[in-house]
């Protein structure tokens, strides 16, 4: 389904807000399901979910850690009088994991959007251009910094350092070596970019034109209205549970 990027932004905002408002795993599960359906509807390449494999382990660990900090509910694991794991703790852990998935999946909706259109949409939403430009620069440089990080990883290993076998006390030292050049490069790039922007007369004139244009069509209004109706219905249904 081809919709305007502002429609997608509204849907992302709805899913993210719902994920933060609700804590019940069942409701969060329904929201996640709706979210996944939207992802399919917007024809986002599903191969992206392969990238999730790495996060699943992290989410699972986070879920276990979170569950240990909740003391309410029936004990599932106890040491004397101390409750180590409770039913509420497990449910809370699951909620946290589902929240993460919803936030990640709602972001995926924007994945097949053109960056220029995203920027234009933000401008049309009356977000100050300086802020929009910062977002644009951020998006533009993410792959560059990821590439730099990977190069440093390779560079360190090719000097004979096996990162998997680094002693614990030396891990910090290695990670300082990895991140310091990237941070330095970020600062250097920011400085160069600011000079280049000045040289090209950034914001010299308040009027700025755009080569591309985006407009809301009938399908956008339909999708936006439907999204809001479903959201209100969900909120109403949860209230009456």
């Amino acid at each position: 389904m081809q919709v305007d990027i502002r429609t997608k932004l509204l849907i992302v905002a709805i899913f993210s807000a719902l994920a933060l408002v609700y804590q019940n795993p069942l409701i969060l599960g329904i929201i996640l399901l709706l979210n996944l359906l939207t992802v399919i509807l917007f024809r986002v390449p599903l191969q992206i979910f392969r990238e999730f494999k790495g996060f699943i382990y992290m989410y699972a660990v986070l879920m276990v850690i979170q569950s240990f900090f909740v003391r309410d509910g029936e004990p599932l694991l106890q040491l004397g009088n101390i409750y180590l794991l409770t039913t509420d703790g497990v449910l809370y852990g699951i909620s946290i994991m589902l929240r993460f998935f919803i936030l990640a999946c709602s972001g995926i909706i924007l994945l097949n959007c053109n960056t220029s259109e995203l920027i234009l949409a933000l401008v049309k939403l009356r977000i100050p251009y300086e802020i929009v430009f910062m977002i644009q620069v951020g998006i533009r440089f993410i792959p560059v910094f990821m590439g730099e990080l990977q190069n440093i990883f390779h560079g360190i290993q090719l000097r004979g350092v096996d990162l998997r076998r680094v002693y614990k006390r030396k891990v910090l030292k290695v990670y300082v070596s990895i991140f310091s050049p990237v941070i330095y490069s970020v600062l250097q790039k920011a400085e160069k970019l600011s000079i280049l922007l000045e040289l090209r007369g950034f914001r010299k004139s308040p009027a700025r034109t755009y080569y591309r244009d985006i407009s809301l069509s009938r399908i956008d209004y339909v999708v936006m209205t439907l999204s809001l109706i479903v959201t209100v219905a969900l909120i109403y249904a949860v209230r009456n549970l």
Binding site: N151, I152, L158, G160, D162, P181
Partner: peptide, 18 residues
Amino acid sequence: SLAKIGEKVGYVVQNPSQ
């Protein structure tokens, strides 16, 4: 491993900053 290859083969990349 990459580290073992690095012990045998030294590599100077095109862009030294990397």
